[in-house]
């Protein structure tokens, strides 16, 4: 199982094993990682699962799609160069060790 690490705005880290194919958002929410709200459950409809992807993984994770791009523009925390909605990042072995920082404001 690929591992993913979440870093809270206050620096607290949580590392989880992700089910292959589950999104970074689903992995967090099902295990109660705070700060990822994800009210729409992964439909790319709410922009409340905003994360900043660690620079080392930015290329592997890739750029947001056009819809996600527009959602990020309106996210509660200002977007950064590696901003993504974590519901749109599916975990796989290629992303093992992924590190994301959770955006301070989601709603």
């Amino acid at each position: 199982m690929p591992k993913v690490t979440y870093i809270q705005p206050d620096g607290v880290e949580t590392t989880l094993d992700a089910r292959d194919g589950d999104s970074v958002m689903e992995t967090a929410v099902k295990n109660g990682v705070r700060g990822i709200v994800a009210e729409c459950g992964g439909a790319c409809a709410c922009a409340t699962c905003h994360v900043f992807v660690d620079d080392a993984f930015a290329a592997k994770v890739g750029e947001p799609g056009p819809l996600e791009d527009d959602m990020l523009d309106g996210a509660a925390s200002d977007r950064q160069a590696t901003s993504r909605l974590s519901c749109q990042i599916k975990m796989n072995d290629d992303l093992d060790g992924l590190i994301v920082r959770i955006a301070p404001e989601q709603v």
Partner: peptide, 14 residues
Amino acid sequence: ESLELRSPSFYVDN
């Protein structure tokens, strides 16, 4: 399984 809102262990832990 993918529809679960929380994993079973979440409820136990909380």
